[in-house]
Write a protein that binds this DNA or RNA. Sequence first.
DNA 1: CACGTATATTTCCGCGTGCGTATATACAGA
DNA 2: TCTGTATATACGCACGCGGAAATATACGTG
Lengths: 141, 141
Amino acid sequence: MESSFAIIAEPNRRAILSLLASSEQTVGDIERHLRMPQTSVSKHLRVLRESGFVEARADAQRRVYRLRPEPLMEVDAWLTPFRRLWESHVDALERHLDRMAQARAQQQSSETSPTPNTIRSNKINHSHKNQNRPSKKDRKR
Amino acid sequence: MESSFAIIAEPNRRAILSLLASSEQTVGDIERHLRMPQTSVSKHLRVLRESGFVEARADAQRRVYRLRPEPLMEVDAWLTPFRRLWESHVDALERHLDRMAQARAQQQSSETSPTPNTIRSNKINHSHKNQNRPSKKDRKR
DNA sequence: CACGTATATTTCCGCGTGCGTATATACAGA
DNA sequence: TCTGTATATACGCACGCGGAAATATACGTG
């Protein structure tokens, strides 16, 4: 559980963080919003606290949790070398995010262009014919 | 293993991605650069392929791997609501990154000042054990 | 063409670890 | 004191990682 990346690998923790992004919350708030057992919330909060993602302040019996920026900044910094992959063609970014958004909303459109997870074949083997990326067939280097 | 976050939670996979950020590489290249067994490289590459992080093209017996932007874009997009946490105070960002940089450069000196910029928790906060930032004892390899 | 070599992927197995649920404990406020 | 709230502990379980061996594919050479 060392790295910040492992921390945000857990979906419930990401949900907690996203909830805290709007405003600080007590444990009970999170419990109700996310519909998860309080003991589970507290356990995740402990992990988030010990890894620096959140901090708590005491308000009577309650603990009010609030985000801390550093670990997410670290993730953001790690992404830096990769941004050039998509920052050059912004249109591709937006098209992808749009497609993901409406693919999540309505799961039926079969578009013309391939979707990102088309390579999820278990039996892909190493067929040297490119997996449905038609762009580069066989280029001899 | 569904989410992109779980994929990049693995340190070796992040290393592979970072290596691919510079340029495309064969499996053997990655094996040599990262000094990890080839079978392990292939296994991680499979995960990265099936989750859309990389794609492979065949060059004779070799597979040349290359990055695909979409999953990292997804991570980047998730970070969006949190960026307001640090984009307002740039100074804190830079101080933190500087400290992380030199903590990575010299990995043995325990720092002298007991008060980093973490003193924002000036409230009651009677939690007992985690006033201090958890020491990153990671980096096992 | 058969064979050996290089490269890459797959399969099998053991182990560590983190998650979830339930239970127990600490603490503050009425 | 009792009650709500928060944290800690114990246990079972699933899953992913690492390592070793086996399999697959392509190239070169005799």
